[in-house]
Design a protein around this nucleic acid. Structure first.
Ligand SMILES: [Mn+2]
Ligand SMILES: [Mn+2]
Ligand SMILES: [Mn+2]
Ligand SMILES: [Mn+2]
Lengths: 142, 142
DNA sequence: TTACAATCTTAGTCTTGTCTAAGTTTTTGG
DNA sequence: CCAAAAACTTAGACAAGACTAAGATTGTAA
C-alpha cells in the first residue's frame, strides 16, 4: 500500500519544466523536457507515465502532455518557491550558474515556514542595499 | 567505469551520524546509526559496506566501524555545513523540528560559494538584533 | 504520395537505497 | 559457564530513476 508519493524530487523537476514549456511555447514536447533536464527522452516517457498515474498530467502516447488542474497548481507552487530562492541568492553576488544549481537542489527541501522566512529576508535585503553591498564584497574576494 | 561518486546524499548522512556517535561515545554502533537515521539495521550494514569500498570507513563485520582520515575530513566538512545552515535558520524563530528537517535536506545542495554567503549572512544577523526581531515577528504571526 | 528525419515509446538493464525475514555473532546476567 | 537477549549480517525483494538500443509514429519536403 505504499501510498504514491507523487511529489518526489524528480517529479517536481519535471512538472516545473513542463509548466515552463507550456507557458513559453504553448505545449511541452518530450524532446525539450529531456534537453532542459539533461536526461534521455526514454526517461521522460517513463516519468510522464508516472505523472499521469499520479493525476498530475494527462498523457497520451505520441500526443504530448498537458497539466491537470492539480498538476498545474503544484507546478506553480514549485515555481514560486524556486523564484523566492533565486531572488534570495541573487542578493549575495553569486554567479547565476551556481545559483541555479543550488536552487535546483535546495528547493525540494524547504518547508513552508522556512520559505516564508526566506521570502521576508529577501524583502528586507531589497530595502537594505548597504547590507547587500557588504555581503557581496565579503562573498567575492577576501 | 562510472567513478564511484562516494558522496551521495545518503552517504553524507551516514558519515555525519558516524562522526557524531564517535565524538559522543567513542564508537559508532549500527543500532545507533539506524535509530538516528530512521532506517533498519540491515540498511546500515549495506551502507557500511559501501562506505568501506569508498575508503571512507574501515569496516569489519560484527566489529564496528571507524572513519578513515578521508572519511573523517569529509564528515567534518559535512557537519560544519550543517551547523552553518542551522545557525542561519535559527535567526528566523522557526521551531527546531522544522529547522532540523530542512537543514538535513538542504545541506546536500549547497555550493561552497553559497555556504560562504550563508555564513556571512548569519554573522551579519548576529550583529543586527533589530533585523532579527523584525524577521521573527513577521515569520510567526501575521 | 512517399521516403526521410525527427520524435517518441518500449524493452531490458543498472544503481542506489530501502525493507523484512531469517540466520549469525557477541554480550550479558544468573 | 551458558542460555537468552541484543546486535549484526545476509538473502531476497522492491521502487525510483536513470541509461542504451531498437522499434514505432508523426511530420515534412520533394
Ligand atoms: Mn529542482
Ligand atoms: Mn526548480
Ligand atoms: Mn542530510
Ligand atoms: Mn546534516
Amino acid at each position: 500500500m505504499p501510498k504514491p508519493s507523487s511529489t518526489s524530487i524528480a517529479s517536481q523537476d519535471y512538472l516545473e519544466q513542463i509548466f515552463h514549456l507550456i507557458a513559453l511555447k504553448g505545449y511541452a514536447r518530450s524532446v525539450d523536457i529531456a534537453a532542459n533536464l539533461g536526461v534521455s527522452q526514454a526517461s521522460v516517457s517513463a516519468m510522464l507515465k508516472r505523472l499521469g498515474a499520479d493525476g498530475l498530467v494527462v498523457y497520451e502516447k505520441y500526443r504530448g502532455v498537458i497539466l491537470t488542474p492539480k498538476g498545474s497548481d503544484l507546478a506553480q507552487h514549485i515555481i514560486r518557491r524556486h523564484e523566492v530562492l533565486t531572488r534570495l541568492l541573487r542578493h549575495f553576488g553569486l554567479d547565476e550558474e551556481t545559483i541555479y544549481r543550488d536552487v535546483e537542489g535546495m528547493e525540494h527541501h524547504i518547508s513552508a515556514q522556512t520559505l516564508k522566512a526566506f521570502t521576508l529576508l529577501a524583502n528586507e535585503l531589497d530595502q537594505n542595499p548597504a547590507l547587500c553591498r557588504t555581503l557581496k564584497r565579503k562573498v567575492r574576494g577576501k
